[in-house]
């Protein structure tokens, strides 16, 4: 799914991009795990007063033509009007620590907050390009939306040298497409985080079920209202919607009953068994106290 407002990212096949080792490589597509984004936001919240933006290292996996950002960590840096300094030693020791837990993840680039790409960004990009060589370093710029007139969003860039003589502080940042990716099983946690309850607390099975049913019921209501308004002639019917509805309503439920009954009996059996074992266990533990 897309992140941020749609960008005018260009999808060019350039021949002089990045390192000369892989000429003619297409631009990588980047996917990012929510954990990395959340970490960046947390890091931004914990910045010191003197810092305008924070930076850090992105780690993840790299396939053929795709970079998957799976995690990130904060790196110390300081920017003044004269110079920029990145704590390289900290970066290395932190990566070493991360590497021990997850040996498959490698350095893929760096992040910063704010969408300001300046000379310092180019210098840092140059440093990270060395770290990720022979691959290109990916730069994630997260706009936190704290300044007036900016909108929350994340953008990804790769860089390309600029000028007659390549210089570290000269480079072009080329926007590349970015998507959010996580495993299906992690959706539940994100669902929890985006649910409108307050205070937020983990839900039980039945809560989740009832919420889902409510949202399905709301969808049916919406379709019903639409169909009614079409029938009344208020709105012009849309052929695509009609076909979708026909497909959905044509779903056959014949022969489902017998299957349903046996399924029900199996489930009842399992439920009975589970409760039986549980009470036995309870009794057994009480008996241990009696002797």
């Amino acid at each position: 799914m897309p992140l941020g407002s749609s960008s005018s990212a260009i999808y060019l096949q350039t021949s002089a991009l990045g390192s000369s080792a892989n000429p003619g490589r297409a631009l990588p597509t980047v996917t990012v795990h929510p954990v990395a984004l959340f970490s960046i936001l947390d890091h931004f919240l914990r910045r010191t007063d003197s810092q305008d933006r924070v930076i850090g290292t992105l780690i993840g996996t790299r396939n053929e033509n795709e970079v998957e950002v799976r995690n990130c960590f904060a790196v110390l840096h300081s920017e003044t009007s004269e110079q920029v300094a990145v704590d390289i030693e900290y970066h290395h020791s932190m990566f070493e620590l991360h590497h021990r837990v997850n040996p498959k993840e490698v350095i893929v680039g760096w992040y910063s907050t704010g969408s300001n790409l300046n000379t310092y960004s180019a210098l840092i990009q140059n440093f990270y390009s060395q770290e990720t060589a022979p691959h290109q370093a990916v730069h994630l710029a997260m706009e936190t939306g704290l300044q007036e007139g900016t909108q929350v969003g994340v953008k990804a860039y790769v860089s390309s040298p600029l000028g007659v003589y390549p210089k570290a502080e000269n480079c072009v940042f080329i926007p590349i497409p970015l998507e959010l990716r996580f495993r299906e099983a992690e959706r539940s946690t994100l669902d929890l985080l985006t649910s409108p309850h307050s205070p937020l607390a983990p839900l039980t099975d039945l809560d989740v079920l009832s919420e889902t049913l409510q949202s399905v019921s709301a969808m049916i209501d919406r379709v019903l209202a639409y169909v009614r308004s079409v029938l009344a002639g208020e709105v012009e019917g849309d052929a695509a919607v009609g076909r979708y509805l026909l497909d959905t309503l044509n779903t056959s439920v014949k022969g489902m009953d017998s299957g349903l009954n046996s399924h029900l009996q199996d489930t009842l059996m399992v439920s009975y068994l589970a409760n039986l074992v549980r009470s036995q266990v309870e009794v057994s533990s009480r008996l241990a106290l009696v002797t």
Binding site: E184, T212, R222, T267
Partner: peptide
Amino acid sequence: SPRSALGVKEVRTLGSKYGVLDLNG
């Protein structure tokens, strides 16, 4: 068009938990 025709204002980019409704449990 289907979405705009139905007047859907919000797309849940993150959530879709209809797997919960799977009958097979």
